[in-house]
Nucleic acid binder design. Structure first.
Lengths: 239, 239
DNA sequence: TAGTGGTCTAGACCACACT
DNA sequence: GTGTGGTCTAGACCACTAT
């Protein structure tokens, strides 16, 4: 192994290998910080830096007054990266802006979810996502309308949802909640996706909140069954 | 604010508030470690502990030789927690074991994905997930068969997929990859889910790997359109 | 050359868990 | 009480960035 690694990193890596090889099993206690310090000839603060890496990676759990214990990686926690959202062929998407318009229909369900007063207005932004020549998904974004916060064409066409919200809203977006479900295509949706009505479709809804839990924007994507899928993976860990 | 917090935590929290209130904007440099040390009357190592919290939370990015800079939370990275996989009514699932059997049909696509020799055997485990009185999803798990690693009834019925794999395989499972797609129900699947054939369904496929990238197990869930959805949220952060 | 973060030391005192 | 991890100090030297 390369000698350029800091000592604490090396320590963490060694223990990681012991866990992955099965030498250290789930629930086993790793040596105490003092013991590890002697073993590697380093001070306790440096040992703790290594321990921190393992804790971050989810490979150990430390309990005050008791010790640090091996836990297997949490394979039930998966990360979705929407930035490289995945066409079925793996390629990137092209975007086509369909429309940008103002809405003030307070019977609209998104209008209500954004918690707006009847006088308020909502911006509705619609895009089509292409993979190759075929349309893969319809994307609709709803945001509170703010005066003096123009939306640039380039943002409309290329930016992703959290970025558009960050640029257009005063409050800082701090949380995104997503729900994935399944539905069938309406005739209009099927038309846009160049397919038949009543086909199955994946529906991805996102709501972005400020620190005060005020919903700043809502996004809804309707995805063609054969041209879109979601990928997720468990934590990679930096060791 | 409570006085029980360690100083480094307080420091990180203060900066977090500045970011969320907009006082510190994306790209801004936060004070240097030395400055923060003087400001709080603490040593540099303690400052660095606070900085580490902010880095973990994804609120800042530190660059050697330059400084630490504010970045807004990555709202495109979402975490799915499959453990509390979500019935549409939000409630927990009950499980019903359908069958456990040995397969050695090497034309089976899962058999091939597990990278097995023709002589090898595969365990196929099928469960039904209920929310309330209605079946929500069909779950099929494929694993390499290992002699001398019995599967306990309780595991079969209650454990989730990564746990079953961890218990039954010799290698330590270290990675889980998931793909979510959409399909229609076969007549048999519709029968099990007590609904009509050709209905849309969400399909969740998981593959669990060892450290050598050997696939240890494959899981495929076919979920009823109205009785199942996936939830995900951006990183909560521990501040 | 000056300023910044990255690594590391050799201590200290505290809070918590066990017995 | 002993053993453990949690917090914190007051330094040191290094590597990288900028000017």
């Amino acid at each position: 192994m390369r000698k350029l690694m800091p000592v604490y990193y090396r320590l963490a890596y060694d223990i990681k290998l012991d866990i992955e090889s099965g030498k250290l099993k789930q629930g086993d206690m790793i040596p105490t910080e003092e013991q590890l310090g002697e073993l590697y000839g380093i001070s306790r603060m440096t040992v703790r830096q290594g321990i921190a890496l393992l804790t971050e990676a989810g490979l150990i759990e430390t309990v005050k007054g008791k010790g640090s214990f091996v836990q297997l990686p949490k394979l039930n926690q998966l990360i979705i990266n929407l930035r490289n959202a995945s066409a079925s062929d793996g390629g990137p998407f092209r975007y086509k802006l369909l429309s940008v318009r103002m809405v003030h229909d307070n019977s609209n369900s998104y209008f209500q979810q954004l918690g707006l007063a009847p006088a308020d207005k909502v911006i509705l932004l619609r895009r089509l996502l292409y993979s190759g020549d075929m349309p893969s998904a319809i994307e609709e974004k709803y945001m509170r309308y703010l005066r003096g916060k123009p939306l640039l064409e380039t943002q409309l066409e290329y930016a992703d949802f959290p970025e558009v919200v960050a640029k257009h809203q005063d409050s800082v977006p701090v949380r995104n909640e997503m729900v994935v479900s399944v539905d069938t295509l309406s005739p209009e949706q099927a038309d846009l996706l160049e397919t038949e009505p009543h086909q199955p479709a994946m529906v991805i809804k996102q709501v972005i909140y400020s620190k005060d839990d005020v919903p700043l924007g809502i996004s809804r994507m309707v995805c063609h069954k054969d041209r879109f899928h979601l990928n997720a993976t468990s934590f990679p860990g930096k060791l």
